[in-house]
């Protein structure tokens, strides 16, 4: 019997965990640290914006994972990954082709920010789209 045939439920998550997305604002610290000490790693904190997705994960918490759930999950992740990939590809194109000609350091920072934001968007979108697909036209279905 495959894992998908076992009856499992999603993790119990409080939607308030979505507030962890606020840590994404720590990314702005990077502008200050770069100016004062040349550190760029705090820009990675922009990826924490993705934690806003925990709000939707929380709304879907303790849900029975049936075949429709897996189907919606695959659909949501496919779309979210597509958006992330396109965003990273555009970031590489813009920074590599244009920004790098003027200032390689700024190009690297822009790339770091854009890739972090792309990861954040990817994580958020996968949770949001799963919730959206699962509740799509739900009102019409009520008995």
């Amino acid at each position: 019997m495959s894992d998908k045939n076992k009856i499992t439920r999603t993790k119990k998550i409080n939607p308030l965990f979505g507030l962890l997305g606020m840590f994404g604002f720590l990314g702005f610290m990077g502008f200050w640290t770069y100016k004062t000490s040349g550190l760029v790693f705090p820009f990675i904190f922009f990826a924490f914006f993705g934690f806003f997705g925990f709000y939707y994960a929380g709304k879907m918490s303790d849900t029975l994972m049936d075949e429709r759930f897996y189907e919606n999950q695959a659909k949501a992740e496919k779309k979210a990954n597509k958006i992330t990939f396109i965003m990273i590809w555009l970031a590489l194109l813009i920074t590599g082709n244009y920004l790098a000609q003027f200032n390689i350091e700024y190009a690297f920072i822009a790339l770091l920010i854009l890739v972090s934001l792309a990861f954040a968007l990817g994580f958020f979108m996968s949770q949001y789209l799963l919730y959206k697909y699962d509740h799509e036209s739900f009102d019409d279905c009520e008995e």
């Binding site: 849900t63 049936d66 075949e67 279905c141």
Partner: peptide, 22 residues
């Protein structure tokens, strides 16, 4: 059948195409 009630609702409204197993 090991699915959610919402899935049965959608099936009855022909809004969800079930797997052969289901």
């Amino acid at each position: 059948v090991g699915v959610r009630r919402e899935t049965i609702m959608r099936l009855e409204k022909a809004q969800y195409n079930p797997s052969l197993k289901l």
